[in-house]
Amino acid sequence: MPLWWPLLLASLLFAIGVYGVLVRRNAVLVLMGVELMLNAVNINLVAFDAHLRDVLHGGQTFALFIIVIAAAEVGLALAIVLLVFRSHGHIDVDRLRGLADRDPPTEPSGGDGVTAHSALTGPGRTR
């Protein structure tokens, strides 16, 4: 098989991931785009590893580690996304404007804070 086949696949997958990152508004969907990008990287690494006959298996090892990193990232992402959801009531990246440059900076709970409160007292709580 020509070496460029997996490389081309990786390039296209990477580009699709970039598209996903740019176009999605939901934080979790953005993250899916990132996962596609990381997988593209792994294809590259594994293909090069096979091509180079790397005695250290640098490519494969790297790919393994990247998978683990991705898992750790997603685990943390879950917590962060839930944190945002609890305080804002949504995880829409475009609507997270509480820190924007032009907003009056002295109101930490203005604007989004209203939804934040309703989210906290909403049915999501079981106590």
């Binding site: 098989m1 020509p2 070496l3 460029w4 086949w5 997996p6 490389l7 081309l8 990786a10 390039s11 296209l12 990477f14 580009a15 699709i16 970039v18 598209y19 740019l22 176009v23 293909a47 096979a50 091509h51």
Partner: peptide
């Protein structure tokens, strides 16, 4: 989409041109 196509085109042409003829 434009950005993605650009990324795809640049990356793909680079690797394909770089590794044509190399067999895995």
């Amino acid at each position: 989409a434009a950005v993605a196509v650009l990324v795809a085109a640049l990356l793909a042409t680079t690797v394909v041109a770089g590794f044509t003829g190399v067999r895995l």
